[in-house]
């Protein structure tokens, strides 16, 4: 999946709904998701320096009642009241995705426990190694391909990535 689908959103909401969490914030895949069981909660300005175009989509989602929060197993039997979900798109149009050269497992660091190849905010050149994709113990180094600044890592470590999937976002130098 290179994009967050309706199904993914529903699963996330379901997970949140069943949890004891009061708020959930998900970032990645070009989408930022913020849900809260407090109807008055608002997401803080996501990128302070240069506010991106923000698309706020209101989605009707079941929210937990206070009783449910205290007693999660009984949750499903308690009909929830409606709350509001804010989906905030923060991706800048000119950011360049670094894509997976093939299907495999994504690793952000050369080996477990060591520092990642790159961190958000780091400057890269086209030759900078940004991650590796492993297929059956065969490791392919992925390079930035563009000079700029790493803005986002879209994939978690050791997650399956598909061919052509966006792995990182880089803001190219002007």
């Amino acid at each position: 999946m290179s994009k967050i689908s309706q199904q993914d959103l529903e699963s996330l909401l379901d997970l949140f709904d069943r949890s004891e969490w009061r708020e959930m914030r998900v970032q990645g895949h070009g989408v930022e998701l913020f849900v809260s069981k407090d109807p008055n909660a608002r997401l803080a300005d996501p990128v302070a320096a240069t506010p991106p175009r923000v698309a706020q989509v209101a989605v009707q989602a079941p929210a937990a009642t206070p009783a449910a929060r205290q007693d999660p197993p009984a949750r499903t039997e308690v009909p929830g009241t409606s709350g509001t979900l804010h989906v905030t798109a923060t991706t800048q149009a000119h950011w360049v995705p670094v894509r997976a050269p093939c299907l495999g497992t994504f690793y952000s660091a050369p080996k477990p426990g060591s520092a990642p190849f790159v961190a958000v905010g780091q400057r890269v050149t086209p030759d900078t190694e940004v991650c590796i994709v492993e297929v059956m113990k065969l490791f392919t180094t992925v390079r930035a391909g563009v000079a700029g600044t790493v803005r986002e890592v879209l994939v978690r470590d050791s997650e399956l990535v598909e061919f052509d999937q966006a792995l990182l976002l880089i803001e190219p130098d002007a």
């Binding site: 093939c102 299907l103 297929v135 059956m136 598909e162 061919f163």
Partner: peptide, 24 residues
Amino acid sequence: VVLGAAQARESYLNAPRIVHAAVA
């Protein structure tokens, strides 16, 4: 799951990628 580019050797003829995908 998308294994690789359109050419068969990058996808349908690539046993490591296929089994990797099946396991994952």
